[in-house]
Simulated assay, not measured.
Amino acid sequence: MNAHHLPDPPRRMVVGISGASGFVYGLRLLEMLRELGIETHASVTRAALLTMTHETGFKLSDIEARADYLYRPDDVAASISSGSFRTMGMIVAPCSMRTLAEVAQGVTSGLVSRAAEVTLKERRRLVLMARETPLTQSHLANMLRVTEMGGIIAPPVPAFYARPRSLDEMVDQTLGRVLDLFDLDAAQVRRWVKTP
């Protein structure tokens, strides 16, 4: 009997942007994925839209211009809410502590946390760029729980060994390292090489 195997996953990434500080991470991630030829399916929480207004001069139309598909935060019937919709995985950039808690507890209030839950249940790679400091015991417990479920917590921590000359370079370096987790090589990453 011949076994039927699914083809390799499509070059398709789910991007969630939640309400933590650091809206620029999600926006720049969409640009980098486009440069790599990856189809993007994005959703932005309501809190993230507030953060966008306070931190940047961007508008929702700027996200629409960068994402191949953009879903409303309450559209739980969207493609990315189903495990049968095949993807490479999902990145939440940035990830608020509320979104982290929803993923950790399996209680979803919107599309971003639902899509993250789907990513975990389908055993696909989930990366949460958790953005908060200092951290409470509940934050740490939720990070541990998501890690035990197979997710990856990747806080946006600057890599000073790369000697970034600007905030943009720091953002690119951090996102490049996140993309490494999906075996996607962003040209912007400065890699550590120790010379003898």
Rank of each mutant, 00 (worst) to 15 (best):
V103C: 06
M52F: 11
T56P: 09
V146I: 07
E169N: 05
R46L: 12
V127M: 02
S18Q: 03
T195S: 12
S82G: 08
R11T: 13
R12N: 06
G151P: 03
A130L: 02
Q137E: 14
T147L: 00
L167V: 15
R165C: 13
L60N: 11
V14G: 12
E31C: 12
V44G: 09
D75N: 15
S79R: 14
V24W: 03
A186M: 10
P196I: 02
T40G: 01
E169P: 01
L60W: 05
Y161D: 06
P196L: 05
L135F: 06
R123C: 07
T87N: 10
T45C: 08
Y71C: 00
R28Q: 03
A116H: 05
R190A: 07
P10N: 02
S138K: 13
L60V: 07
E31L: 15
W192N: 12
Q188G: 14
G22D: 11
T108L: 08
H54L: 14
L49N: 09
T195L: 14
G176E: 04
F160T: 12
D74P: 01
A93W: 01
L50F: 07
G89N: 08
V103P: 08
R46Q: 13
V146P: 04
V171H: 00
G89A: 03
R124H: 08
V112Y: 04
I91Q: 03
Y25R: 09
H41Y: 07
M90W: 04
R114C: 05
T195F: 15
G22Q: 11
R190V: 13
K194C: 05
A48Y: 05
A65S: 06
N142M: 00
R124L: 11
Y71H: 09
P94D: 02
R28V: 05
G150W: 15
L36P: 07
S61D: 13
G151W: 11
T99V: 10
S109L: 11
G106E: 07
S43A: 05
V157K: 11
T87H: 09
R98V: 14
R177L: 00
R131V: 02
V146E: 02
L27I: 12
R191S: 02
M97Y: 02
